[in-house]
């Protein structure tokens, strides 16, 4: 079982890393989701694996806790799952904002981020004029 969990963590990490190195925001978000899974499982696994020993006290006995798995990593991971949702949501918002403002969801800039770079109007178009069109995946229509 340990091998399966470890390899799953590895695969999730590898997939996540590959995806965050892509150039589009949405893919990076997917990669971060995979990485979050990996990190959460890893944290969980530091409590070691146990089958059939949930940390819910039952017939409470003092001193002997071998019947229960380690609850602490679970508590940590529980909040981590919820927080990573919050993080994903904020990132999605960034990606959406960037896409709607800039017209694409590339994550890389074209040049260095110079603080004193002159801000020049690269596209002297009327901002009102360039509406965008949302493309949908072509779908067979039945009517």
């Amino acid at each position: 079982m340990e091998l399966l969990v470890a390899s799953a963590v590895g695969a999730l990490t590898a997939g996540g890393v590959y995806l965050i190195l892509r150039l589009r925001a949405f893919t990076v978000i997917l990669g971060l989701a995979l990485l979050s899974y990996a990190v959460n499982i890893f944290l969980f696994s530091t409590g070691r694996l146990a089958v059939g020993k949930p940390p819910v006290l039952d017939g409470y006995t003092v001193g002997d806790f071998s019947a229960y798995t380690d609850p602490l990593p679970q508590a940590l991971v529980l909040t981590a799952i919820v927080i990573s949702f919050g993080m994903t949501a904020v990132l999605v918002m960034f990606a959406l904002g960037a896409y709607l403002e800039a017209g694409d969801d590339k994550i890389d800039m074209d040049g260095p981020d110079q603080p004193d770079r002159q801000i020049t109007a690269t596209t002297p178009q009327d901002p009102e004029s360039d509406g965008i069109t949302f493309d949908f995946e072509p779908r067979e229509r039945d009517a």
């Binding site: 340990e2 091998l3 969990v5 470890a6 390899s7 963590v9 590895g10 695969a11 990490t13 990996a38 499982i41 890893f42 696994s45 530091t46 070691r48 694996l49």
Partner: peptide, 9 residues
Amino acid sequence: VAALAYSFM
């Protein structure tokens, strides 16, 4: 990471 997780467990 897999190796790390495995050695932990």
